[in-house]
């Protein structure tokens, strides 16, 4: 099992890790010959994140071999990876490789950074090598066609309001928020705190992107188009997701009524050669 690469695009890599750190402590990093995949999948109802990027988006001179069809699965502590990558900000060159720590044989991702002609920084990130069997059952959720798609307003703004709502949610509420959108460019976020409190924020004049080859919006009656398709999500998880707002170039939410919310976050401008998109899946809770 060998893995060695030079890091080509530090800023995108750092953006990726900073979008993942608020969601979970560790992530599953799947390295293969043609793509790199970051996955947060905790087995419970928590938010899942799937991000697949091409090798060239992050790496250069990428070399990988393993007995498992040249695929390596690692469990990586996100905060350490993020911290280590931050050392690269002034790097001339950075090389990432999988190796064993000299002192105790723990597998590590070793990031060697050349910051100037004579200075070398080495960051050793302890990792766990996952067997192919242990990740076999992990599949990206299949949601089907969305009932409504909407481009979210600036996430920092949404987050400020969501945080305020969560502060009010203590009484008679289990920390859930209702999110909803329609085909008329409207998005709403609502807190229903039992008898005690009810808060709602609405955004108008947003865009309703359509998936290619889809007839989603075709034959909707005006009434059906203005009807809100809603999901009920964990408020804290939603606030954590919204932390990516600083980095997101564009953000589209797809509502599958009563089942799930899928949020696509673009870290790069549309049409960028190294397009990087993270997909967040949130389960909808029944009331």
């Amino acid at each position: 099992m060998r893995f060695k690469t030079s890091v080509r695009n530090i800023s995108t890599f750092i953006k990726l890790t900073s979008c993942l750190t608020p969601i979970s402590k560790t992530c599953w990093l799947r390295l293969s010959e043609d793509e790199v995949r970051f996955v947060i999948h905790r087995g419970d109802h928590g938010t899942q994140v799937w991000a697949t990027v091409s090798i060239g988006t992050l790496f250069d001179e990428y070399r990988i071999t393993s007995a498992n069809s040249n695929i390596i699965n690692l469990e990586v502590p996100l905060s350490l990876l993020h911290r280590a990558l931050r050392s690269c900000s002034a790097a001339v060159d950075a090389v990432l490789r999988l190796t064993k720590r000299a002192s105790d044989g723990v597998p590590i991702l070793c990031l060697t950074i050349t910051t100037s002609i004579s200075t070398l920084v080495t960051q050793e990130i302890p990792v766990r090598v996952l067997s192919a069997a242990s990740v076999e059952g992990l599949r990206e959720p299949e949601i089907g066609e969305a009932d409504a798609n909407i481009c979210l307003p600036p996430l920092t703004q949404v987050r400020a309001i969501a945080e305020r709502m969560m502060k009010l949610s203590s009484a008679g509420n289990d920390g859930k928020l209702i999110l909803a959108a329609n085909w008329k460019g409207e998005f709403l976020m609502r807190l229903e705190g039992g008898e005690m409190v009810k808060v709602e924020s609405r955004w108008r004049d947003l865009q309703n992107p359509v998936t290619e080859d889809s007839d989603q919006q075709q034959d909707l009656s005006d009434e059906e188009a203005s009807r809100f398709k809603q999901v009920r999500v964990d408020g804290r998880e939603w606030v954590r997701l919204l932390k990516v707002g600083v980095l997101a170039r564009k953000c589209v939410a797809c509502f599958v009524e009563g089942r799930a919310l899928v949020v696509y976050v673009w870290l790069t401008e549309e049409g960028d050669r190294d397009e990087t998109v993270l997909t967040y899946y949130m389960a909808s809770y029944s009331a």
Partner: peptide
């Protein structure tokens, strides 16, 4: 499993 909770080990080598 605790291995991932170990701190980052950093080395700076300079002339």
């Amino acid at each position: 499993k605790e291995i991932l909770k170990q701190p980052l080990q950093t080395s700076i080598s300079l002339d």
